[in-house]
Nucleic acid binder design. Structure first.
Lengths: 192, 192, 192, 192
DNA sequence: TATGAATGAGCATTCATTCAT
DNA sequence: AATGAATGAATGCTCATTCAT
């Protein structure tokens, strides 16, 4: 009787360890051995669950992509204020910071991989749509009308997320909040 | 007397080749051999001008940082419309696209290096200040009052630059222009 | 379960190959590849068992140090005549010649390494003590009284070993024996 | 008109720098650049005066060989006591220590080079003859009769020189003197 | 399943040597 | 005579991958 293990669970554990390694050391310094150690397994186990290193990294990237999506969805569907909703999506704890760091790597890789670029487009388009809908709901405009506002809102959030994950000390939550408040004030109260 | 060469010129050539390699292949795939080949020299020549690989990459990063600064300054000081000025700073040709790709790597590295983070802060702060001054001039407000608007403008530009360098096909100049026009309209015509 | 190997045995095999390489080619010409080939493994295997080249060489040095000690102990504890005992410690076959050649390298390195110098001191002091005790036993003097005689005996043996390992043709065993006989005659029969 | 330089003087300067490099860093760490720097010239100058690295090292070895010979001759021809004469040949200052260190390298190389082994034999034979003559003179025996005594004396001196150059702290001049006094007492006063 | 020993290609780096000046 | 820029082969080392157990 083979040892009972949850295959998918195992893959997730390893991919998550890979994501942590990417965020902590940079993509160039990530090794199979390093991933295995972070996951508490041997290199043999890693190659047992993944075809090769690239497959591990891909899974880590998709994991983080999903994690960011989930964080945004949760923020939007809970009754937070718009600013609080966005703050929840931005880097504010170890896990969210890790996700933003890995997302940077994901998007950089997307510039050189057609498959990743598809994924990148669909993820960013999803955020844009969510933002458009949210903004449309608040201002009474159509989703199409809110689209350009959404581009600015999502763009600014993106830039804050990048900066805050790169330089956490330079980007305390108050700075993030001040900008978001200002941004949303502009787009909720100055609409056409 | 030894062969006469322009030492600084040589270093720039090599660092520039390194920047191209980073943008084309990703930081993980950059090799000394690859850099040397792009620069049209041997690996020995590269190590003759740089202490080690890290020194080459650092120079490439600083080169691109300066190049982006220069592009922004030129855009602002020439008589372009605000939108045209920002478009000139955004990815629109091979060189500007390369610079944005390398800038991403630079900022990612900054998250793990104190020295690079200093440089990152001073560069981003410079852009923010330039934008604040420009916006203040247009709207008649103080630089401090324009600061938050500048954060949004710079953030949006940043996000567009990232996206356009990652996915040039998804970000034709018209899309960039539409967002910038919208953005600037908001901030020039909907003042405090 | 992984392949079962005797870790220490493996290390010894490799270190021994390194010792052979040192003796055959000189320390400057020793390469990881050369060591691996002599040991019948790949370079990867060598670095699998040793942190780096220096660790391999250190192990080789210590291996030879122990080997010389063992040879001397065996010679002294078996019922040989004093001359035969010392001859057994001197270069007389491929292995003993190899050991003397490596010992030279070991002692040379000791001049630049505090750790090796400690080892060097304790090894040479051990030989000196063994010789003192042996001489004291033969002559009825105290160990302290025999100490200076021992310095001369050990020194002469050392010099013969060096010369005989450098120039085997110039130092046939008869030449070694003639000097040892003369030396021991002096110190056993001319006591105070 | 070419710059006037003393060709042989230049070669000696460089070879001497090479000898210093060997003693200080070990033969494995000696580089052309290192030699050039110690000599205060450029690598180009070194290759200008020597065919290749091996030629530089050979010259350094021969230089030191000659230097040791000279030191011994001076010691023997001046009116020192026998012990003082030998002490003058042994490591007692920076230069003599350097010479003994390089001599070790020379003799080690001799084990792998026919040409060097010739040189090694003739040098060691020269010392042996000098010692035989000196001992014969003191004891009134023939040179042939003194030969075996000389082997022991030269061997002991050799061993002291090695040890004292490897571990100067463990071999202060008093220790050297004590052994030499004892050694010479044996051979001058206990003769047949 | 899972281990970790073993492989060997690929890397950054060093360095003797060459050569235009 | 002398420089030092440039070369490129060779080295130690890393690491993804394979595989016997």
């Amino acid at each position: 009787m083979p040892k009972i293990v949850d295959h998918d669970q195992r893959r997730s554990t390893i991919a998550s360890a890979a994501a942590e390694a990417i965020a902590a050391d940079g993509i160039e310094a990530v090794t199979m051995k390093g991933i295995a150690e972070r996951a508490g397994v041997t290199t043999g186990a890693v190659t047992h669950y993944f075809a090769d290193k690239d497959a591990v990294l891909l899974e880590a990237l998709l994991l983080v992509d999903a994690s960011m999506q989930r964080r945004l969805d949760e923020a939007l569907t809970r009754g937070h204020s718009p600013t609080d909703a966005l703050l929840a999506a931005l880097p504010h704890d170890a896990e969210s910071r890790r996700d933003w760091c890995v997302w940077r790597v994901f998007s950089d890789r997307a510039s050189r991989s057609d498959a990743l670029r598809q994924q990148y487009r669909s993820s960013t388009e999803g955020w844009l749509r969510a933002a458009s809908e949210s903004l449309a709901g608040r201002s009474g405009r159509s989703v199409d009308q809110a689209r350009l506002d959404a581009e600015v809102v999502v763009g600014t959030v993106d830039a804050i997320g990048d900066a805050a994950s790169i330089d956490p000390d330079g980007w305390p939550v108050e700075r993030q909040r001040r900008i978001l408040d200002h941004l949303l004030a502009r787009f909720e109260w100055c609409g056409p």
